[in-house]
Design a protein around this nucleic acid. Structure first.
Lengths: 336, 336
DNA sequence: ATGAAAGCGCTAACAT
DNA sequence: ATGTTAGCGCTTTCAT
């Protein structure tokens, strides 16, 4: 595209019988031209099928018209991440911006970010080299959850994970659980660290003998499964299983059955990340809905506010997470 | 970024004591400059942290350095699509290109594509307006699977879905199934249409009384579940269930149990799209691995070959799909 | 083997 | 209210 017969601003200006500047101003509605010429130019542009050349525009000094989104490999299978991505795209499109994907291979060899005005990072791993690189670059960064690696991003959107987990743990306790296990996400993310802390605090406050079992990021389902069976075999008193990382609950469910336990009956089961499958499994699994699409949108919105100066650097915005109660945590029935 | 102190070609040229042109040629290795000056300029550029400005480059006439990828909303939950996307990004990054996400809201109001040299479409729905728009634009399009909407794309990557389904149906038959049901993906995609055709043909050739049940795209799990139960109740003779759309097998599994049937025993179960969960469910579910990441990479590679003229317009490339046999199709045991 | 200069399409000063 | 001009950083003739 764009090569060959592309219609330029000059074409429009000539056809409308005005100057480049007037055409430009008319098209962007800068309020410099009279209403009559404006509409005339706009109509001409439409008739000619004019589309502004973004490269020229960005070369001239405006932004690049695109924001970056880091896509860590680990998250390839994460339903959460796909929704998050759509949220970012939604919001970017609303202000006529592109979304450019950034992966490990995508950093320019010379270490400079290409073609983006800013970057959104979902759940940045403090150990991810791409993240480190991105934080070092001079484009503003908005993270979903805090970045635990030192440098502070220009903005952040934070979920109330502590509160959500607290509510969930309260629920488990009132359903009868006394020995919950948290298969906690790695503390390399703020989310994982928050969950671990909240779990410990809740156990202490309620005098519960909870067990914390950390799961590195990107554990394959088979591994989750093996760990669950191991855990349950090693400690038969466990009466509630909380699955942290996205997808781990789906992997844990069959393992629970295989361990001879019945989720929702003699073992309560819950997930820290809701997913479509959890509502449909047998039994349906209680989960925290992180509202990923809205989270993505919120991050993008914050980034644009930062870029336009509407929000000051360092802005932090909050988001609510929702506890979705399903059959898997209804009530604990102790074996006779 | 890029604003403020960005190092430009002129800076490098000055620092190296050569002209803009020489610097440019040296950095791109156009073979115009002597080896000694070339290495000198390159070193200078490195020292200064120079990164070429893509906007300027693309303004000057080269491509935009980015390819588009259409992300239909429907696919938000598709593991397949997320992997496909990573494949595209991999390949694009390998030739130093960006990947720009395109959604419904993203088409410029004037119908012209922005900032991309070409577009990749995974499994284009003939009914998707964005797809129609994209096909109409003048950027080359590569589709994964055929586009059934009339216009031919510049290139296509095709899986051997007919063969794969055939193998699967053979397997089911030799495992004892005589009344298979295909919950077929909508015929609005080439993939869906191919699967439906293959199923009908196989049934005819083997004299099997198969049932075709079309599932529109993006059916929520609850709906899949309801349909499965309905199907199984209405026709108790059904002894094999084939799930088409990504995710439908996961939704179907609990429904099968609820219908009083035992998958892998008195009902064979299989999926047309493999997913992480299927290997871990109880029982593990036989599926066709579409190799999404490689498919994405293949599409991107084809697009770049098209853009560079290495491949002629109209090129079609093939990909193999793999049948992954698991416990759910081992052998049919008819109830006594 | 290297330079000089012309522009790609656009916007922002500076004029009217 | 509108027109003129000067670049943004780069590649590409055309000269040396």
């Amino acid at each position: 595209m764009r090569t060959g017969g592309a219609v330029t601003l000059i074409d429009v200006a000539k056809a409308a019988g005005v100057s480049k500047t007037t055409a430009s101003d008319a098209l962007r509605g800068s309020g410099r031209v009279s209403e009559s010429t404006r509409s005339h130019v706009v109509r001409t542009a439409q008739r000619l099928g004019y589309a502004p050349n973004p490269s020229a525009r960005s070369l001239r000094g405006a932004g690049t018209g695109a924001v970056g989104l880091h896509v860590p490999d680990i998250l390839a299978r994460s339903e959460y991440y796909m929704s998050f991505l759509l949220g970012v795209v939604d919001e970017a499109a609303a202000v006529d911006h592109d979304v450019t994907l950034i992966t490990a291979r995508h950093l320019s060899p010379r270490g400079t970010l290409r073609r983006v005005d800013g970057v959104v990072l979902a759940d940045p791993l403090s150990t991810d080299p791409v993240v480190a690189e991105l934080m070092r670059a001079d484009a503003p960064v908005v993270t979903c959850e805090r970045f635990t690696g030192g440098t502070a991003p220009a903005g952040a959107v934070l979920g109330d994970h502590r509160e959500a987990l607290w509510r969930l743990l309260d629920r488990l306790r009132s359903a009868g659980a006394r020995r919950p296990v948290l298969m906690a996400p790695n503390a390399a993310t703020d989310w994982g660290a928050t969950l671990q802390r909240a779990f410990r605090d809740h156990c202490r406050e309620t005098g519960t003998g909870g067990v914390l079992h950390e799961l590195p990021f990107g554990v394959p389902p088979a591994e989750v499964r093996a760990r669950v069976k191991e855990l349950l075999a090693a400690d038969p008193a466990v009466d509630a299983l909380l699955c942290g990382p996205d997808g781990s609950a789906q992997a844990a469910l069959p393992a629970v059955y295989e361990a001879g336990r019945t989720p929702g009956a003699d073992l309560l089961l819950a997930a820290c990340v809701d997913a479509a499958g959890l509502a449909q499994s047998a039994p349906p699994v209680t989960a925290v809905d992180l509202h990923p699409r809205e989270a993505g949108a919120a991050c993008a919105r914050l980034l644009f506010d930062l870029l336009s100066g509407t929000a000051p650097p360092g802005t932090v915005r909050r988001m609510e997470c929702t506890l979705v109660e399903r059959a898997s945590t209804r009530e604990l029935r102790r074996p006779a």
